[in-house]
Every structure is written in structure tokens, then in C-alpha cells.
Design a protein around this nucleic acid. Structure first.
Lengths: 211, 211
DNA sequence: TGGTGTGAACAACTTCACAGCG
DNA sequence: CGCTGTGAAGTTGTTCACACCA
């Protein structure tokens, strides 16, 4: 689908997600056409940035008019891959993991947890609110293969994260969303995204400290 | 404390947090000296990058030797502001908020929640595991002033986030850690850090889709 | 000798400014 | 005429290469 085979800047991908969410809001509000200027205001970025970002993937606008909300949203969803659901597995059902399992913003976008793993014998067998049963980690590989899991989310303590990542890689799973506050390596070909609460807090603390 | 009054790249600040965590690990492992090459491996960045990042704040190394772990960690903690505790307030005690309140990785680094707010009458008065009582949002301003809260964490649904941010700004609070999947504006002088799970998942989906 | 600190070269990303088209 | 698409300019961030010093 990409018109340009060239490399897409990582920041462009991040913004694409942002555009998608604003367009979803606009669609709910029955807005049918939007200019890059107006969308830029909503997303808090430069208008030229939006137009440039989009040219990596094609020409979606109409000169003199703007972008049709439905059409652009459809295209961005297709680019990201949100035109079909994604099966996820969750590993580590402490406080954070349990909250993530039921996090409705994931399911709204087509991300669905189809498996949940933990090693604590007291947790095995528990049915979560989202109707998912906690299963033992030693069945992870088999179950992930059976249920065609494409993305693994790691919410274990930092010490266990590398081990779990290696396990997921063996499934093989190509994408890992990591919530553990640690830095680790994954095999070439596996894409790792870190969600780093503590890092963000440190950034805040720095800015409040230095100003 | 900064030797250079010049602007520090945001990416440098993010990496500082990463360096701190690796140095904390090294300290626990009784490593007393480390070179930029070795630290770079651990952090998965370029060695020159580390040295350059540090020069924004001073000269912390010894030529021919490297960096003393204790000393460098102390300096980085001081730069970030981790040499003293930070009082935080949490707003929104759904699944995610409740998990955050008890998230031990925050308290380990000197971040402590000293107030928790929600609007749901059924939740008011509940004592969380971390020994914090849920209080009504309409007391937010007064309580945050009393308890000298410096940072607010928003874990409400997206629709409520802007409203809560405005309230926090009135305290006034200078830093906001936002977990709600929405984009909003804060007054000049307030620093906003977004933790965007869904955005990260979208990035993952994109990479798995386009390769 | 070995590893830091740093100016200079390089690479990446963002913004401008305007051509081109509906 | 208005707004997109886009080369070119500008800005920011990263890496190199080596002087310098313990």
C-alpha cells in the first residue's frame, strides 16, 4: 500500500495514531471534511507536518477542500493495521496487569486479550472481569500458537521481563509491549515498544526541578 | 547547577532516566567504575551520546578511567530532582488508577501518592492497599495545597481529563502525568507528560503490518 | 595507555513557501 | 480562490574523530 518505499520516521508513526484518534472524534461529531490546519490545531502539531506525514503513504486530500474524515480515517486505520482485530497475550497479573486486562480503550480499537499468564499458583484459574482465565506461564507457547497471538504485553516485575520476552519470542511473537521498568534486548525482527511510566515521571521531575 | 545554561534536548532528559536506572543496577551489583562504552551497551545507545548528554550538566568522568558509579548516579539524581521525595495526587480510581496507587516502582524512586480523588460516591472513603483514602474531587484544590502536591496523575476516562487538568492547574500544580488517551492543552508553565498505551500499541501494529 | 570531553561533520526531522490542481 | 502536496531551507539531534589529560 505505501506509495513510497522509503523509510517512515518513527515520529510520523506516533503521530498517525494521534491523527486517527482525532479523526475518530470528528467522525462521531459528524464532521465530514477537515483541513490540515484545523486537524493540526486539534493534534497540536504543525499543519505542514500532517501533510508531509501523509505523503509517506499516498495522497488522501482534495486540493482546495481538505480531507474527507471518513476516507482519511479509513486509510490511516489501514496503514496502522486497525482494519482487523489483533490478538494479544498478557503476562503478569499483578495490579497493573489486571487493570490492563480490562482496559476498555484497547478493546475499542480492536486489540483483544485472548490469553493471560501468571506463575503464582494462587492466581491460576481465576476468571477476570473481562472473562479471561489466568493460565500458567509454562503453557504460554502452546496457547499463544493455538490462539494466534500476535502481540505480547509484559506486566511482570522487572526481573522476570527478559525471561518472558525470550519465551514470547519463541512462540514466535513479533511485537512486545513492555510495561516493566527495564531495558532489554530482543531478537532482530521482534519489535519492542516500551511504556515507561517511571521515565515519564522522571522527565516531569526534571522539568520542575530545572525551571 | 547546570554548567551550561543552554537548552537541553528532550531526548537527553529521557536518556538521563535510563542511565539512572542502569547505574542503580550497577550500584547494587557492587560495580564502582564504568566507561561510557560499557554503559552505552547496557542502555543500548551510542557511547558518544552518553558523554555528550552529560556535558550539558558538567564534567563527571575521569579521563583514562571512566565514571565512578556512585558519584555519577548521585549527580544524575540531583539533576533529575530525585534527591528528595515528590508528593503526587492521583485522580481517577478505576482499574488503572487503583493499580497505579500501589505501583511500587514509583515509591522506590521517591514518588509518593499523598492523595487520591474520584467522583464516584461508592468509592469515596475506601482505603486502598497503599493506605490512601479516596476523597471527593471537589476537595482536590484544598487538599493538594495542604499536602504540598507537586505532580498530578490523571487516570480518568478521556472525557473528564481536560476538566481535571484545569482543576490541577488551579492548585497550582506544575506537572501533570496523563494516562487518559486524549490530547489536551495546559497553561504555559505547566508541564504535561503523556503515557499513551494505545499509541504504543498502534506503533506495534503498524510495524507488524508494514513488514 | 585509555577513556573522557568536544568541535566539526553528518543525519534526521520539521517548517517554510509556493507550485499545482480541484 | 483555497488547500493540498512537496522541494528546498532551516533546525535539531547524533555520531565521528581526535585533542587532552589522569
Amino acid at each position: 500500500m505505501p506509495n513510497r518505499p522509503g523509510r517512515v520516521p518513527p515520529a510520523t508513526v506516533t503521530r498517525l495514531s494521534l491523527y486517527a484518534r482525532q479523526l475518530e472524534n470528528l467522525k462521531s461529531s459528524q464532521v465530514s471534511v477537515i483541513s490540515s490546519d484545523r486537524l493540526a490545531e486539534l493534534c497540536h502539531v504543525n499543519p505542514a507536518q500532517i501533510r508531509k506525514d501523509l505523503t509517506y503513504f499516498g495522497e488522501f486530500g482534495v486540493r482546495g477542500v481538505g480531507y474527507y474524515v471518513d476516507e482519511l480515517l479509513f486509510q490511516i486505520h489501514k496503514i496502522i493495521g486497525l482494519n482487523h482485530p489483533w490478538n494479544l497475550a498478557l503476562v503478569g497479573l499483578g495490579n497493573l496487569g489486571t487493570a490492563l486486562a480490562c482496559y476498555s480503550n484497547f478493546s475499542l480499537r480492536g486489540y483483544r486479550f485472548v490469553a493471560a499468564f501468571d506463575n503464582d499458583p494462587h492466581k491460576i484459574g481465576i476468571h477476570l472481569d473481562c472473562d479471561l482465565e489466568i493460565e500458567p506461564v509454562d503453557r504460554l507457547i502452546r496457547i499463544c500458537r493455538e490462539r494466534e497471538v500476535k502481540i505480547g504485553a509484559i506486566a511482570t516485575p522487572a526481573e522476570k521481563a527478559q525471561e518472558v520476552a525470550d519465551l514470547l519470542t519463541k512462540v514466535p511473537i513479533k511485537g512486545i509491549l513492555n510495561f516493566a521498568p527495564t531495558q532489554y534486548h530482543v531478537k532482530e525482527g521482534v519489535y519492542l515498544a516500551n511504556v515507561d511510566f517511571t521515565g515519564k515521571l522522571d522527565e516531569l521531575a526534571y522539568h520542575l526541578t530545572s525551571s
